[in-house]
Design a protein around this nucleic acid. Structure first.
Length: 327
DNA sequence: TCCGGCAA
DNA sequence: TTGCCGGAT
């Protein structure tokens, strides 16, 4: 049952970080942050990132430790946030309440429309990324002058869209194989791990298996996606063969006497997701590192020693790229 | 979440 | 080839 089945079909190769110099990647913020959240929580004592009020801001530690990787390789990140999560307004409480109500309405609407799958997924994502985490992350990224985009729905879909149509954006950044189904021309994976990233190539994948985008999505649905279980007995090989033979998902389902709940809706989630072109990117970054330090350490009482290395790396890389312009 | 081993 | 389980992370 799974998304990882796509890995066996996808054209993926390791790419040295150096080759990404000067490029721009639209990062699925939730996917990226979650990796750092789990490692921070796992390896760091919780008093480091918990304020006197008991608010946990491990995300700030994660960001400070994760961002240098981008800066050091002159790879510009654009953080793309999931929609359905609140923005900090003047009256915080009021804004939160309104947002929650709007979100409840969305859930209700989604359910009424028989789109329980989509609702469930938004719900799962929103639960993990709390409002505090979202707000404080945005603020810290603002201080560090990292461009950010608010997706109308899923950050992943928005990132893939930007990689597809925005000339300034070269890649989507996410570990999720869904990016392939979303048509991201090139997806960078493993931006959070030690070694070099992987690049996943959409066109090359289609050509390798002689598939259209729609057919690739259908193969994915047969194997199973985040929105459906997949058909028993169908892995990547069998699904590929079946789609070739019958042309599309409906052909296969008819031939097998199988049914996928909301199949047409799931297809649309990949082929025509809810995304926007209404955003501005200022890619000339001039981070205010002192302000960022102050924000994290003083405002959120995060222990300084845990962060100093990260800030130092950011500082060094900013100086470095500054010098590069003269060489 | 990812990977290897293993049964069917 | 698929699906499941255990172990490492």
């Amino acid at each position: 049952m799974g998304n990882a089945d796509l890995r066996q079909l996808a054209v993926i190769e390791e790419v040295p970080f150096d080759e990404l110099e000067g490029d721009v990647v639209a990062v699925d913020a939730h996917n990226w942050l979650y990796k750092y959240l789990t490692t921070t929580v796992q390896w760091t004592s919780d008093d480091v990132y918990t304020t006197g009020d008991g608010i946990e801001v491990a995300n700030l530690v994660g960001i400070v430790q994760g961002l240098p990787k981008f800066f050091e390789h002159d790879l510009t990140p654009v953080f793309v946030w999931d929609g359905g999560v609140t923005e900090l307004k003047d009256d915080e409480v009021e804004a939160r309440r309104e947002q929650r109500e709007r979100y409840e309405e969305q859930l209700e609407e989604a359910r009424e429309a028989g789109e329980a799958i989509e609702a469930a997924r938004l719900e799962a994502r929103t639960q993990r990324l709390t409002e505090t985490i979202h707000e404080t992350s945005r603020e810290l990224l603002n201080l560090l002058d990292v461009p950010q985009v608010e997706a109308p729905a899923e950050g992943e879909a928005q990132a893939a869209h930007m990689a597809r149509v925005d000339d300034d954006v070269d890649y989507a950044g996410s570990d999720d194989y869904d990016c392939l189904l979303l048509g991201s021309p090139v997806t960078l994976r493993q931006l959070t791990s030690k070694g070099d990233p992987e690049r996943m190539d959409f066109q090359a994948t289609l050509e390798k298996h002689d598939l259209t985008w729609e057919q690739l999505v259908d193969v994915g649905i047969l194997c199973g996606t985040d929105f459906n279980e997949g058909i028993t007995g169908f892995g990547p090989k069998t699904a590929l063969k079946a789609i070739r033979e019958h042309g599309d998902l409906w052909g296969v389902l008819d031939a097998e006497g199988e049914h996928v709940e909301y199949a047409d809706r799931i297809r649309e989630l990949f082929l025509n997701p809810d995304v926007t072109d209404d955003y501005d990117l200022d890619l000339d970054s001039s981070p205010d590192i002192d302000a960022a330090r102050e924000y994290v350490i003083e405002e959120w009482e995060v222990a300084a020693d845990e962060l100093e290395r990260g800030f130092a790396r950011i500082e060094d890389s900013v100086v470095q790229t500054g010098l590069d312009q003269w060489t």
